[in-house]
Design a protein around this nucleic acid. Structure first.
Lengths: 270, 270
DNA sequence: GTTCCGCATGAATCGATAG
DNA sequence: ACTATCGATTCATGCGGAA
């Protein structure tokens, strides 16, 4: 546990083998999309994407604890007017590697990229694939409970405005026991559809991963003190999320500029 | 064109070969989900689902016009704690058949089935897979434009409640031209995420498929007078949607009770 | 005619029980 | 051991009756 809370510089295909087996509680990552970030990983062509990723997922399978979870945020590109099948091929191949494809969460991007095409609407969702090593894994559902759908309409009607405000801030802070006792029936478990906006004010980082996304999965699948790994950490979003939630983190990034950026962001956290 | 606007009784594996090639503008269907039980279509086991469906999709490829579209509403079940891969295997096999996997729409089910499990949240989405025969297909995007996000906040604030309701029903009825002239700048194109509730309390429709779902795709991919096919039409939802929108329809259903139900629903349309 | 409240109802999933 | 059935869990929706 001495080598955590760091951003490691290097290609994760080289760095991952140096990590001990069964040591990570959660892997959350958004790998470079096919054909993008050409300079870094050589601009993987969609047709070669699966072959490129499988050795990495094999290492991830090794370093993950048996009770751990792997969340893969990914979306297939349109190639020649068609959704390229590399993502679904990857799911099948990873199952052959030994991964269990436990669930597929949908990240609904409330503010998706604008544009207009004659044969296609704007793409407003991405996959967050959940993989596990075994059927029994750690999941802390209470940590991500949300206000009930008609909460504001019904229960809160009788509360004063100040009560309501106090209530909401408590709910948002989220650390549950007293809150869930107090508002108890006002909180429900979420579904497998996440409604999050992309971060507009983000800098030059290509993979715009809102902080909320890794935060949600970190709360759901880890406890304080657990270790979160992101093998394509980019500007450090996952590490910041982990740190804010009191989890240990480990990031891998091949581009020195990103490593620097991530370390700067982490220092700013104090 | 004389044999349309009917619900055909029979297994679609037998009925489809009797239909002429290149005659259908849109196929929208929600096939029976994989089930261990043996009622309709012999209760297809998830492991056999792909083999069962491929001959059907081959026939669908034959009857669809080159400019037509096939929308397949489906969702994989959980089997032994894991999402079963039959849906994604089917996508790959259908591509080998010659289908283009153009897009994947997400139907976000606002009212999903309740429940609580230790390792899983409620499933609130289904796939609406779009397949085509060629890269150029008919798409009428203007027919499904929706009010802008802040529409209710800005424009509608000044309208009375009755005006608002009338307004919404106009938009929902969807015949675009006059509406888009009238509210003009208030309408935007939708994304590939649909937010619809399932119809729960509609008695005789055990329909899982809300009327809005086929309606949306019918408006998007056909014009008035075009032909819509549903090879697993069930209680006739797709036919009702087509009829209301002035499209011809053709339904296939293996269970006589459903055929009767569908015809009754269609008669009620007048 | 309107708003409000109560209630039944789901393309679900898991775990236990029974054959 | 492996499959089939059943009960428990849980919440957004829209209907119907009531004020």
């Amino acid at each position: 546990m001495q080598d955590v809370d760091r951003i490691l510089l290097g290609d994760c295909r080289r760095v991952l083998p140096e990590l001990p087996a069964n040591s990570v509680d959660l892997i959350v990552t958004s790998p470079p999309y096919a054909d993008s970030r050409k300079k870094t990983y050589g601009g993987i062509h969609p047709d070669e994407y699966v072959a490129w990723f499988l050795p990495i997922s094999a290492e991830l399978l090794r370093v993950l604890k048996p009770t751990g979870t792997f969340i893969l945020n990914i979306k297939e590109k349109v190639v020649d007017g068609e959704r390229h099948p590399y993502v679904i091929e990857m799911i099948l191949e990873m199952r052959r590697q030994g991964w269990l494809w436990t669930e597929e969460f949908i990240w609904h991007k409330k503010n998706c990229y604008p544009g207009k095409w004659p044969n296609r609407f704007r793409d407003a969702w991405e996959r967050c694939l959940q993989f596990n090593k075994q059927k029994r894994f750690h999941m802390y559902q209470d940590a991500v409970m949300v206000p009930m759908g008609d909460w504001a309409k019904t229960r809160l009607r009788k509360l004063s405005e100040t009560d309501k405000r106090r209530d909401e801030s408590r709910v948002r802070s989220g650390f549950g026991k007293n809150v869930s006792n107090w508002v108890g029936r006002s909180l429900v478990y979420p579904t497998n559809v996440l409604h999050l906006a992309t971060e507009t004010s983000n800098r030059q980082h290509s993979a715009t991963f809102p902080l909320e996304l890794p935060s949600w999965f970190i709360k759901l699948f880890t406890q304080e003190g657990d270790l979160v790994l992101d093998p394509f950490i980019g500007s450090g979003t996952t590490a910041v999320a982990a740190r804010r939630l009191g989890r240990h983190y480990l990031g891998i990034e091949v581009q020195p500029e990103y490593v620097e950026q991530a370390n700067k962001a982490l220092s700013a956290e104090g």
